[in-house]
Amino acid sequence: MNAFSYARPTALADALRRLRSGAVALAGGTDLLGLMKDGLVRPDTLVDLTGIEGLRGWSRERGKGLRIGALTPLIELEGNPQLGQLMPILREALRDAATVQLRTMGTVGGNLLQRNRCWYFRDEGTPCWLKGGTRCFAVDGENRYHAIIGARECVMVSPSDLVPALVAYDAEISLASSRGRRHMKLADLFVAPHGRERREHALRPGELITEIRIPEAALARKGTYQKAMDRKAWSFALVSVAAAARIERGVARDVRVVLGGIAPIPWRVAAAEKGLEGSELDEAACADAAERVLAGATPLRDNGYKLTLARELVRRALRSLVAA
């Protein structure tokens, strides 16, 4: 790691001021320190966010949905029994995310903003397109973990387990910078790198995520999370699927199907979700939805297996919403 200065403010405004002048935000550090050790980020100043009051923890107000502070450790979302009642998908999604230690250290905000795991990206010695180079090394290289759909110049995949689950519940985020606040849909935070957009997140310089909100209506949904890994723990998803729906008298409403690990952004196909509106999520409907979600997929040399896996996990996830 390069040498840097460090501050641990207790006031949000103090942090925002430092970020405006180019400091980098540090939350749990589980991703940032990795990037710094690999020489990919070389900040002059780190602003430790963990001392800021009010960014940690969660609350629920009836009718106003669920609010989760951006600095809440992942382990709390996983382990809190009330949250487990309110939104069981969180526990399901986080159970196989990283490890107890990483979930203890890692925060919700950091998880949303973690950089991708493409091994060419993480290798300081490979000047790939996303890092300002001229070409993507993965397209013709070692690409078993890369995207099968939705990619343009860069075929990296969205790595988070939390993101698909949150997107399936229509999560929104609040952002703050020294210029003010804004809100957006969580789904809009993610960018498939292309053209001049050599980045993965739509965060503006100096901006922080302060909280995540789940609208009240979404909390009525039943949800499930399925993840395929190439060993039985401590692996990023080869493919993951978050599915959620309100089940009313045996039929599905507000269906959401969001995939991780197959595209540069959390992958959703509105037409497939609409097609399931009012369905009983029977075998045929689920298989059909899986086809629609993955229509147009173009696997690379080594990742064709992801298509098979994705179809099966979509089917399983949807079927499990109506299982006893």
Binding site: A7, T10, L12, A13, E53
Partner: peptide, 17 residues
């Protein structure tokens, strides 16, 4: 959430020992 901007803020430490 605290809205009052801090005047001095937290000390900046480093980059040396």
């Amino acid at each position: 959430m605290p809205q009052v901007p801090s005047v001095n803020g937290a000390a900046l430490r480093g980059p040396g020992p």
